[in-house]
């Protein structure tokens, strides 16, 4: 993939990248739609897997390879498994379930459409003629590491504490007695 994104992309390469993006985006959006409408909880988790993989691929197209790797490791490897554990621990029905949604779905649709409309309009107004630089470099992992452990060391440490707190909190909340 890195080859695809080497500096000084040719027109062909841009075209290829765009085609890749289009396919990935359409698949992800379709999977996301299925995820929020499916009647089967386990299927929903699997559709989420497709979306998360698609997002990881988009990261690669954008040159954020480390983020893509983390996405795969953390989201697909950990979070999704965690969610599946949740599905199992709460004894969700394996197979179709009729009682997954509210009756008035149109409210959710309306709100989501309204948000989509305002966001779409403002994005169109603000960035309709903005192009990504063609000669951009892949953001190297060592640069990411440098940045995290120098400029962003304090947020990083705070995040570590947050994770610890979440760990302890989850244990405290979920334990049996």
């Amino acid at each position: 993939m890195t080859l695809l994104l080497a500096a000084e992309m040719t027109e062909t390469e841009v075209w290829v990248a765009n085609s890749f993006f289009l396919v990935i985006a359409l698949v992800s959006i379709g999977a996301a739609l299925k995820m929020v409408t499916t009647k089967n909880v386990v299927h929903a988790a699997l559709y989420l897997l497709i979306v998360l993989s698609g997002v990881a691929a988009v990261y690669v197209i954008l040159g954020a390879e480390f983020a893509a790797a983390t996405q795969v490791l953390v989201y697909i490897g950990a979070i999704l498994v965690l969610l599946l554990f949740g599905v199992m621990l709460t004894r969700a029905k394996i197979g179709a379930d009729t009682d997954l949604d509210y009756e008035q779905k149109w409210i959710g649709g309306l709100v989501a459409a309204a948000m989509g409309a305002v966001m779409g309009y403002s994005l169109w107004e603000a960035f309709s003629d903005v192009k990504l630089p063609d000669d951009r470099l892949v953001q190297r992992t060592d640069a990411v590491a440098d940045s995290i452990f120098s400029t962003y060391i304090v947020p990083f440490e705070a995040l570590s504490v947050l994770l610890l707190a979440a760990l302890i909190g989850a244990v405290v909340v979920a334990r049996r007695d």
Binding site: V36, I107, A112
Partner: peptide
Amino acid sequence: CIGVYGVLTRK
């Protein structure tokens, strides 16, 4: 938006 829709419609 799809996420928002999911949050709002899923029980």
